[in-house]
Design a protein around this nucleic acid. Structure first.
Length: 582
DNA sequence: GCCGTTTTCGGCCCGACTGTTTTCAGTCG
């Protein structure tokens, strides 16, 4: 078993223990160990074989043994017994809004409820309301939660969350009683998938702000509303939470609600280590629970707060407790790439294959936006479903691109299209011969039809990287967010091969992909692998994805120098030539 | 179940909201 499989079993054990009514800290110990495993960059198998689990954060004697058993044998009797002792349907009950382990346990023990269906039936039969600790309202809420679950997925792609957040943020900014406001939560941290939207506002009139928040257009229902906080369900199916604080409290609240939870825990611990206390209302010179303004250490913004805790300002994208504290302490935080530094995209399609727009339109658009270049990398012939080009068509397209470029030059424009291909990685090599690839300026190699075998897929991608005409690998893992998992693939081995061959790796900026995953970029960067932030555009409006992709690159700790398409046209051409000259 | 130079036992981040209570437990973030 690999680290992700082991981690997901540890998380499940933690949840099962909660359902059993075990010590919640024991449950958390399993979750913590899972996080540690997920963050590993070496194969877990190797670590276990070399007996190096010892001393890892959150992994003691008991977890060492369990992890070792899972890695070496592929199963764990303790887990299997635990799992068998409870009906499988209890896990899905936990996903319901307002239903946690204690309630699930009670429903199961008292009413024998072990699935969403039996819970729904019990509510309709009025049996749940009669339980001690439950009531009419709880029962109605559970029914609502079941209906919600049926109607909406609880996760949303970043781009959908951004679209839903923009009008809310705009209306908060315009509100006369709002002093400062911001999105917070996973949206501010630029996670690829978002659960719900969080907003933080400072105001002297919280009631008025909350009022306008719950009454704004697009609100389908109000889930909760108090003096300082409200939750609504938007018509788009996304939940939005607003928290209102005083302006003095704003920096602390913004940091608190931006998270991540793991990042906040370390922040609190740093406060405790100084004999202070940190919460959403302030940083206080007291180890006791307090909100005494006299004890508050004044911070005007988040940067002040980080400074008080001995840290450089940590950009929201990095707040995942994945090394940012050590870096911020030692002034080693990266200077993250800005999306405005991007000069173009090196993986895009036109109407020659499955794109929508003509070469001329694409060129006009790129020029208008002030970009420097745009590579046309239509599909190769194996992707017949996408009208992949055969070698003859590719040669025709090279001429067509030259004509567009000639026209641009005649008009005095700096912008250029680049010739290229997204060549399919087939079972026994690339879809085009090297002599054709050599005549193209940009070659992206992508795996579209993977094998079921991890070693086979890994081998194919490594072989593609070893081809001197291939500049970069496209959408390496093949995942589609909220739709399809990554191919079976040893991504680390492929990254290593790219490092060895000087092959770049694409950060596919499509909000459906964001592939490579941000969690792998720190590793790729440490190996010296360069990133290309590509739109994989099929329409003009997909240019906007450059901004999304840059955000993901920031989340992956990437700086301007790590991203190839921050180069101007001339140095880019030089960089493109470099691999071929080896 | 993990952790530790004030501790090998007794902590483990902490506050708001809701509903069911009549002072609090459960859930959520």
């Amino acid at each position: 078993m690999d680290k992700d499989q082991v981690a997901s079993i540890l998380v499940e054990i933690g949840t099962l223990l909660e359902l059993k009514g075990e010590n919640p800290f024991k449950s958390r110990a399993y979750q913590n160990a899972a996080r540690t495993l997920e963050g590993l960059t070496e194969p877990l198998e190797k670590i276990v074989a070399e007996d190096r689990l010892k001393g890892m954060k959150g992994i003691g004697k008991a977890l060492q043994e369990k992890i070792t058993t899972l890695v070496t044998t592929g199963h764990l009797p303790y887990y299997e017994e635990l799992k068998a002792s409870l009906p499988p349907g209890l896990m899905e009950l936990l996903d319901l809004q307002g239903v946690g382990p204690k309630k699930v346990k009670k429903l199961y023990l008292e009413l024998g409820i072990d699935s969403l269906a039996s819970l729904e039936a019990a509510c309709q039969a009025d049996k749940v309301a009669a339980l001690e600790g439950f009531g009419e309202k709880s029962q109605a809420k559970i029914l609502e939660a079941i209906a919600f679950r049926k109607k909406f997925a609880s996760q949303h792609r970043l781009v959908d969350a951004l679209l839903a957040a923009e009008p809310i943020l705009a209306s908060l900014r315009e509100h006369p009683e709002v002093t400062r406001c911001s999105a917070a939560g996973s949206l501010r941290r630029w996670k690829e998938v978002i659960g719900d939207l969080d907003f933080v506002v400072s105001s002297k009139q919280p009631a008025e702000v909350l009022e306008s928040f719950v009454e704004q257009p697009g609100v389908a229902s109000v889930l909760a509303r108090g003096d300082t906080k409200a939750s609504v369900l938007l018509a788009s199916g996304i939940q939005a939470d607003l928290r209102v604080v005083s302006d003095v409290e704003y920096p602390y609240a913004l940091a608190y609600f931006t998270g991540s939870k793991e990042h906040n825990i370390v922040m609190r611990q740093r406060a405790i280590a100084r004999g202070w206390r940190l919460n959403e209302y302030g940083l206080f010179r007291s180890s006791e629970e307090t909100r005494d303004p006299a004890l508050r250490i004044v911070c005007h913004d988040e940067a002040d707060l980080y400074r008080e805790l001995g840290l450089e300002f940590v950009p929201p994208e990095l707040r995942e407790d994945r090394g940012e504290f050590i870096a911020a302490e030692n002034h080693h935080l990266p200077r993250l790439v800005e999306w405005t530094s991007l000069k173009g995209s090196l993986h895009n399609h036109s109407d020659w294959s499955d794109g929508r727009n003509t070469l001329a339109d694409i060129a006009a658009h790129g020029q208008e936006l002030g970009l420097a270049y745009w590579a046309i990398t239509d599909h190769s012939r194996a992707s017949f479903q996408a009208q992949g080009l055969d070698p003859d068509r590719v040669r025709q397209q090279i001429k067509a691109v030259a004509e567009v470029n000639q026209k641009l030059a005649d008009e005095g424009a700096e912008f250029r299209l680049l010739t290229g291909t997204e060549v399919d990685i087939l079972k026994d090599g690339l879809d085009f011969h090297d002599d054709l690839l050599a005549d193209l300026e940009v070659v992206v190699a992508s795996l579209h039809v993977p094998s079921n075998d991890e070693a086979e897929n890994t081998k194919r991608l490594i072989r593609a990287a070893e081809n001197k005409y291939v500049h970069m690998l496209g959408h390496l893992s093949g995942r589609l967010l909220l739709e399809r998992d990554a191919y079976k693939l040893n991504q680390q081995a492929v990254i290593d091969a790219c490092a060895a061959t000087g092959t770049w790796i694409e950060l596919n900026a499509s909000p459906y992909r964001f592939d490579l995953d941000w969690r792998l970029w720190q590793y790729a960067r440490s190996k010296g692998v360069k990133c290309v932030i590509n739109c994989d555009a099929h329409r003009l409006e997909h240019v906007a994805w450059l901004r999304l992709g840059a955000g993901v690159a920031r989340k992956g700790w990437l700086e301007t120098a790590d991203v190839v398409n921050t180069l101007a046209l001339k140095p880019l051409r030089k960089a493109l030539a470099a691999k071929r000259s080896t």
